[in-house]
Design a protein around this nucleic acid. Structure first.
Length: 305
DNA sequence: TATATTGTTACACC
DNA sequence: TGGTGTAACAATAT
């Protein structure tokens, strides 16, 4: 379940591995995963065979200029004014293997007794081959993610990209900006606020729970009830929790693995997410799990007010 | 077999 | 018009 830190981890490792490499071959096993142009999701899902041809011809032979990120979107910049956008959604993976590692079995799920596999697996939907014999695999068990090719001049028309809020780890995301966004949404529950990508980009269910624990604020509080101190703690929490998770290479909950096939270690320091029924590490009170707005939230009833 | 899962969009309502 | 809340959607493992 990749959120900002996981996607950032993928982007950094991928950048180091595939920059300046040439795509020599592209294979698409599941047509609906790929698309061309700044389309909406509903248009992407049409399984268009012409789309697949255009995707393959538009990417084959191109050289990778850079790999960057906006919110949870991976942007693979190609020389010649186009880019491949990859959204991993719930269970997407981008796994890079050098020529020497292609036959090495990988444990692709963070489940103790899962069998190692050699790629492509049954969940591999797209493969990019590079000129040095290395390969990039797009795997996706739930098939919620997508890979789309856009011209650089279309990038601002991609709906999900143009609507994203500020990047929380950039220096231009200041406390003044944060407080003003809060101010515009007085009635929203803080959990929902943190999860909304149009307000702040890149925060999902794991890190919103962890940020709220750090800030000592319950997920059900509305924005207008938050004190000055709590707003400041939330701001600090967003920066701190996300940047520490990036340092540790993400959380590796569920299906997230790094392009190298290794796992991030932030999951080991989760304080509330996935710990429902376990004692709080600060006060020993049992972590509570509630569901609202269709999402599960875990929090400590004593530490979080 | 019913359910849980999550990022994002669609839509109804005020 | 735009903030807000809710439902829907993708597909599969358990």
């Amino acid at each position: 379940m990749p959120e900002l830190p996981e996607v950032e981890t993928v982007v950094r490792e991928l950048r180091a591995k595939i920059r300046n490499k040439k795509i020599t071959k592209v294979k698409v096993f599941l047509p609906k995963i790929v698309s061309v142009g700044p389309k909406t999701l509903s248009n992407i899902r049409k399984n268009n065979p012409v789309m697949v041809k255009r995707f393959i011809s538009g990417t084959t032979g191109k050289i990778i200029k850079n790999v960057t990120r906006r919110a949870k979107m991976i942007i693979i910049d190609l020389k010649g004014d186009s880019a491949i956008l990859v959204h991993l959604k719930m269970t997407g993976q981008l796994i890079y293997l050098s020529k020497n590692n292609l036959q090495k079995p990988l444990r692709l799920l963070n489940i103790p007794n899962i069998k190692p596999v050699i790629l492509p697996s049954k969940w591999t939907h797209v493969i990019f081959d590079f000129s040095d014999g290395s390969k990039l695999f797009y795997n996706d068990m739930r098939q919620f993610g997508y890979v789309k090719l856009v011209e650089d001049n279309q990038i601002t028309q991609v709906p999900e990209l143009k609507d994203y809020g500020p990047e929380p780890l950039l220096t231009n995301f200041t406390i003044v900006k944060f407080v003003s966004i809060l101010h515009n949404r007085p009635k929203m529950k803080i959990k929902q606020f943190l999860l909304n990508p149009n307000l702040i980009a890149g925060i999902g269910n794991i890190y919103s729970d962890e940020i709220l624990f750090y800030s000592k604020v319950r997920p059900t509080r509305t924005v207008q009830t938050l004190s000055r101190t709590e707003r400041a703690r939330l701001y600090k929490g967003i920066k701190k929790i996300l940047s520490e998770a990036v340092k540790k290479g993400g959380s590796s909950v569920g299906d997230f693995v790094r392009p190298s096939g290794k796992w991030g270690s932030y999951g080991k320091v989760h304080k509330v997410y996935g710990l429902s029924g376990k004692p709080c590490q600060i006060c020993g009170t049992l972590i509570k799990s509630i569901k609202f707005n269709g999402r599960t939230s875990s929090y400590c009833p004593k530490c979080q007010k």
